[in-house]
């Protein structure tokens, strides 16, 4: 197996441990979309969420700082960034979660809602990328 497979698995284990620690220490679900929303909507009550998000940025920085792994390059047109971001915002609020909340925590809890949500967003992600890269949409 290529190294990237082990890195993905190890990274996933780190993410899983982070959600478990968050539940053990603060009793909260490690769903990023919910944490982001709470942190901005009610920063005083959710000061922990702000610290968690600061850690998220710090952690990503630390990985590249320690490993020397090159920083990924983002070449996405700005209108697409804006549209994608907006749709992700609406979708995660409506659907009560994203890849972490439904995909990691929800499936871990064997929540039927989360399993269905995860299958749905994966399927639509597959279809969207297919249409974008291989579809002949005139």
């Amino acid at each position: 197996m290529p190294d990237t497979f082990f890195m993905a698995l190890a990274g996933g284990i780190c993410i899983g441990l982070a959600t478990v620690f968050l539940m053990i220490t603060l009793g909260r679900i490690g769903g990023i979309s919910g944490i982001v929303f709470s942190a901005v909507k009610n920063p005083i009550e959710y000061s922990w969420a702000i610290l968690f998000l600061a850690g998220l940025i710090l952690g990503a920085f630390l990985f590249h700082f320690i490993s020397g792994h090159p920083i990924p390059i983002f070449e996405v047109p700005i209108p697409l960034m804006l549209a994608g971001g907006f749709i992700v915002g609406v979708g995660t609020k409506l659907g009560s979660g994203c890849t972490s909340g439904h995909g990691i925590c929800g499936i871990g809890r064997l929540s039927v809602r989360s399993i269905i949500a995860t299958c749905t967003f994966l399927l639509l992600g597959f279809i969207t990328v297919y249409l974008r890269l291989h579809g002949s949409v005139a």
């Binding site: 993410i15 990023i32 979309s33 982001v36 998000l53 998220l56 940025i57 710090l58 952690g59 990503a60 920085f61 590249h64 990924p72 983002f74 996405v76 697409l80 960034m81 549209a83 994608g84 971001g85 907006f86 749709i87 992700v88 915002g89 609406v90 979708g91 995660t92 609020k93 409506l94 659907g95 009560s96 994203c98 890849t99 972490s100 439904h102 809602r113 269905i116 949500a117 995860t118 749905t120 967003f121 994966l122 399927l123 639509l124 992600g125 597959f126 279809i127 969207t128 990328v129 974008r132």
Partner: peptide
């Protein structure tokens, strides 16, 4: 739930970012 998850999947496929990496990548 279904519409929300579907929209999220579309947005994820359009850019390749979901909320966690979108925040982490601010680094």
């Amino acid at each position: 739930l279904i519409c929300g998850a579907a929209l999220f999947g579309i947005g994820w496929g359009l850019v390749g970012l979901c909320p966690g990496p979108a925040i982490g990548s601010l680094a």
